[in-house]
Nucleic acid binder design. Sequence first.
DNA 1: CGGCTTTGACCCGCGC
DNA 2: GCGCGGGTCAAAGCCG
Length: 504
Amino acid sequence: MSTPSTGISFDSDRITSDHRHHHQLEFMDSTRHNRSSSSHSPPPTTIHFPVNYLDPDPYKSDDKRINEVDFFNDTKHYPSKSIDFDLNCKEEITKPAIDLDFNVNTRLNLLTGNTSSDQSVIDDGISPSYEDKRANHELVSAQAKLKRMNGENQRLREALNQVIYNYNALENHLAMMIHQKQRGENPNGEGSRRQVMDLALTHPAKAETDKNLQLSTSEERNNDEQSMRPILNNQNTGNIDQSSEAPIRKARVSVRARSEASVIADGCQWRKYGQKIAKGNPCPRAYYRCTMAAGCLVRKQVQRCAQDRSILITTYEGNHNHPLPPAAMAMASTTSSAAGMLLSGSMPSSDGYLGRNLLPFSSSMATISASAPFPTITLDLTQTQNPLQFQEPFSNPNHLPHIFGQSLYNHSKFSGLQMSENMEASSRPGQLLPPAALTDTVTALTADPNFTAALAAAISSIIGGAAGGSRGNNNEENVNTTTINNNGHGNDKVSNSGFQGNYQ
DNA sequence: CGGCTTTGACCCGCGC
DNA sequence: GCGCGGGTCAAAGCCG
């Protein structure tokens, strides 16, 4: 646990069962809605990329009434290592603020007391008083530097959170304007309700525009992409009357987590408004809508996996139009970022470039389904250990914060930040991209501004939400630019009280 | 009594 | 046009 390292990493993985929240979902045996037939759609083509996940131990039996998985409960503390960022996020009324609590081990073994056992015994001829003065000077200097860094880091984080918040507000304002425009043109409002909903749930207009522009440049499109052509035509002609558009696509982010809980505690308040038996799965699908603010259009579906009913599948849709509590922001920013990448084309279609390059990670990670009715990115958190994951000490099911950031977080690995530092990991067969593929992927990703934005949000999520950031999971091998000792173990760190993050 | 869940009915898109 | 399936509505009931 206390492996010496200068690494900076971010707290990541923790899932705990939590019964504080009362939203429950009864997966009944009802078959009244079951109209399933024997026909099945072909499995969607997929793109995979890694998500790190640690099993939350859903069978934890401390409490007889485990109804949720709380991804954000953070009560554990970890011994600090070299440089540990203890990120506390306090909730404000309108936006999250962050308190930073740095705990830096300067490795100078600076002592202000006279604990002889720790003092140097080497007689170098320098007087003790000189040593003390020098040590004190260094200590003061380090403290001053730390203070500056602390302030700067907090400012940056606040700025980043503000940007994310403004972005979400603007996005929802756009949806609202479109809604009003539609109502103005269609006073009855009938027949367009669902379309309005879809519009509001659809990811940013710019992302759609980008995607559509990409579509216009190629003749080789699959059927799924062809469905977007009406949108493209409208935009090209300057017609923004989307009420006349044909299929509006909305991105979904699906999270697969192994849990006996009924729902995952993602920090938001949800109200169940429906339940149905979907074709091909005897487990009912429950529909929830966000009730944290009037008019919030975010919805989620919760369903157990037919093949493995210990797996809970939660699918999010849409962006919140209201400030989120810190506990909710991790999921929000992650799903938003994933959806943005999906719709913006940063994550190309299943036969796309990135997909080929990322396929080596396919076994246990995230999946993009391009052939589904809606573009869906699935974060598979059911794997106890993914191919990139080191054996590490934080596989405690209670220490699973922020797993939702992992998908995007791992994407950052491909952005070429630390390619030269993959030596250890690359020694494990099949765990890293071939150099050429990696380079290509890096080029593709970094060339895409949407990826940059998404990555920023994801990093924000990780930094802001990781409740002290570094539980040092698998990711530090690549991302940590200061790592000297990449032994694959998580940076032990002092955790803190609040999990924060960002999501929508 | 208000908020939430349950659940049958309904709407709508899509494929045949 | 029809049936299927996904998604939503809304009345009724439940619960604190």
